[in-house]
């Protein structure tokens, strides 16, 4: 935050520098959403969304229920494809490649874009097998490699120390918060670059929530993260940028401190101050 302010100031001082850093930003964009529309049957769920996401940043997506934020998130790994009668328009580019291209394999896309769901969904297998699952279905057979990857993923998800003695016990024996971190570890094991979190802490108690939030703060060093959350305060705490959605439209997307201290649109202000409706 501090550095952001400094950046802004130095940019104001030096126009040349601003041009350079703008160019840098240009190259650093991990995800670009261009004129994106989404329809369920005849209802339009997302309307002309344009958004750019920097690599290694956390984007919080907030908005009232039914504003399309979860639908939007599920577009990035095309999980909506499982529903029939949906239609896309426009582009979502990840590393400049449009994910709706005909020659793009959805399976490859999902390997690159991990997802963690609202309700933790460990498979009814052991902790170890849960993490190894993604590796195995992707054709990895080397047992040593799998074991090493499982350990690494659990460490990255800040779960290793808590469960290293019971790797082969059922994942269902873990607490809710641990299960959710297991799901994050499972997503990390296949080395995605983008991580989608769909209200990952909505079913957790405050301590487990705090742990997940700290984890997100650590994870952004390696991944680009999109997080949908009902909880505005959570978006404020964890995200670098916040996007506010309403009725399928992206109302405003800006640096998180800007959204929560001085949003540009009145409707955003009404929402973040709880004056909505």
């Amino acid at each position: 935050m501090n550095t952001m302010i400094k950046e802004k100031k130095s940019n104001q001082k030096n126009v040349e520098q601003e041009v350079i850093s703008a160019e840098l930003e240009e190259n650093n964009m991990k995800v670009r959403v261009e004129n994106f529309n989404f329809y369920y049957d005849t209802t339009q769920a997302l309307k002309d969304i344009n958004l750019e996401i920097k690599a290694n940043s956390v984007v919080g997506i907030i908005g009232p229920s039914g504003c399309g934020k979860s639908t939007f998130l599920r577009c990035f790994n095309r999980m909506n494809d499982t529903i029939s009668s949906i239609r896309y328009e426009g582009k979502i580019r990840i590393d400049e490649k449009n994910i709706f291209d005909d020659n793009l394999d959805v399976v490859d896309l999902r390997r690159n874009v991990g997802m963690v769901f609202q309700k933790s969904n460990p498979f009814p297998k052991s902790i170890f097998e849960n993490i190894a699952y993604g590796l195995k279905i992707n054709g990895i057979k080397d047992k040593n490699f799998i074991a090493q990857k499982v350990e690494e993923s659990l460490k990255n998800a800040a779960l290793w120390d808590e469960i290293k003695d019971r790797l082969h016990k059922s994942a269902f024996a873990l607490s809710g918060g641990q299960q959710q971190r297991l799901c994050i570890a499972r997503a990390l094991a296949i080395e995605p670059e983008v991580l989608l979190l769909d209200e990952p802490a909505s079913a957790l108690d405050p301590i487990a929530t705090a742990k997940i939030e700290e984890l997100i703060h650590e994870l952004k060093k390696k991944y680009t993260i999109l997080i949908v959350t009902h909880n505005m305060q959570q978006a404020a705490r964890v995200s670098d940028y916040t996007a506010f959605f309403m009725l399928g439209e992206l109302i405003e997307c800006d640096e998180t401190n800007k959204i929560f201290t001085n949003p540009s649109k009145k409707i955003t202000e009404d929402y973040v101050t709880g004056r909505f409706g």
């Binding site: 999980m79 399976v107 991990g114 969904n121």
Partner: peptide
């Protein structure tokens, strides 16, 4: 459904998801 979604999101094909999960 979450078992299916979970494995699909990890890059499993539909058949892999059904067979293993």
């Amino acid at each position: 459904q979450s078992y299916r979604d979970g494995s699909l999101a990890l890059g499993a094909t539909k058949w892999q998801s059904i067979r293993t999960n």
